[in-house]
Amino acid sequence: MIDGNDAAADGARSKPGMRLLLILLLALATVPLAADSYVQGVAARMMIFALFASSLNLILGYAGLASLGHAAYFGMGAYAVAKLSLAGVSNLWWQLGVACAATSALAAVFGLLVLRAKGAYLLMITLALAQVVWGIAYGWRAFTGADDGLPGIHRPEGILLWDLSGDVGFYYFVFAVFAAMIWAIRRLVDSPFGRVLVGIRENERRMGALGYHVWSYQYVACILAGLIAGVAGALLAWQNGFVGPSYLSVNYSATALIMVILGGAGTVLGPVIGAFLIVALESIVSGMTERWVMVLGAIYVLVTLFAPDGLAGVLRRRARATP
């Protein structure tokens, strides 16, 4: 009984989840040794989007706040490092620090506006706010390059002997950030803070009656989610050497949502798996047909029809059916 606070809805502490995560990390660590640079690029994208989806999962899966505008933070992080890189700032910590500061500031402002809304209104207001950012990026040619975006971003200087300019060096940097962040998210969702978020998701009124200051937990969660999304965006900007308004688009926001739902909201591993599957599928399907968008649309429909609790939910149901 003492070891028993392992709620089935939260796979964070489950042993199979831990084992799967370690296997995944091990596999990812060996990619540059075994695969060509194309596969390596796909694997890096997988980790970047997994981080993006995990950041959304923090508010959607744990705090119970849906968002159709999470790409605002992702794009903000990307544009921040892009502007710095183009301005000649090549120090990694400066770039990352400014990206984090900018995205968490943005999340701090948006959080004030969105936390009053619920349900469909929450979806719409988050989308509306993200569109404001997108509109600025799309309209302000002098600063953001408008629809041409900002090409020619250089990867930052390395750390000591760790060179980030080469593909392998950068791949391991993405890997390190990804592993560290997922580890931190695991810690976070198990912590008193994370458990309080789950309590709020399950029953906001009751948490208030217990004396928790619900709003401040949700607000901090919004900022953390924005910050992690910003880091993911920065990584993608370095990876691609380019940012454009699409980074801020509702397509990116919705993609993050479907990644979270596909894997299973409210589990640490679910969004990672969801993102891996969709990014992998994208690179496979795009090689065979031009109709990837249609396939992606079909994934949305199939997931919402048949796996609304995601793969984690399907596995749980399967496990219950065969004891």
Binding site: L68, L123, V293, G297, Y300, V301, T304
Partner: peptide, 10 residues
């Protein structure tokens, strides 16, 4: 919302 977004993509 997600299903109708998917339908929009399709």
């Amino acid at each position: 919302a997600l299903m109708t977004f998917g339908l929009m993509l399709i």
